[in-house]
Design a binder for these strands. Sequence first.
DNA 1: ATACTTACTTACGAAAAGTAACTAAAGTAA
DNA 2: TTACTTTAGTTACTTTTCGTAAGTAAGTAT
Lengths: 106, 106
Amino acid sequence: MNTSQLCPKFEKAMSILSKRWTGLVIYQLLSGPQRFCTIESSIGISGRLLSDRLKHLEDEGIVKREVYPETPIRIEYSLTEKGLALQPLMKELEKWSQDWITSKDT
Amino acid sequence: MNTSQLCPKFEKAMSILSKRWTGLVIYQLLSGPQRFCTIESSIGISGRLLSDRLKHLEDEGIVKREVYPETPIRIEYSLTEKGLALQPLMKELEKWSQDWITSKDT
DNA sequence: ATACTTACTTACGAAAAGTAACTAAAGTAA
DNA sequence: TTACTTTAGTTACTTTTCGTAAGTAAGTAT
């Protein structure tokens, strides 16, 4: 019996953020559009999972993917308007982490 | 090779929130101290995982546990100052979910 | 003694994550 | 022509985490 008293929209939002790596991928893309391998090395996720997460974020309309047929091929991922709208939340998390996470915690 | 360029404090904060259920448990406790079974039924988590998550949140100093030896026994979970400090973040997530999650998404 | 309540814990199959090696496409170098 | 490089993934396989359901412990109440 799942007698949820929570707002379904809030629950959905939380389910996106509480999937491992998605938060960090979004945070990373807040610094600008970037390619697969850049995200991969900057947050330390494996290609297998990054591929999966980017697909999901595209499905959610948070990330968009653009192909530039250069040499070698360049594929850039960036945030949509919906994704960019998460910036205030990320700022709050930055603030909280600075205020409350001690260096021992890491 | 994990060449993290992220702030370790931010990474740690994100790792707490991106563990399934922890965000919802914290959110639920923002409405006041409550017992195990109340949290369990209001967010739809199983006892097994709630037990685990509360223990972790206690270890992180986000949640505190108090025992009232009444009949039947009452054990109340509540947010510490560190946990309460997540309220602004939760408000941002509420805002974002209202603005950007459509009813189809749920 | 038996049942009832709360707050868990245990056991176990299913799903997700982590690691590493492999593939595809397109150009470049020898 | 053949081999090599780069980017962007995918596949195969092991380990960890999750979800469900049943069981336990302490303290009444009947």
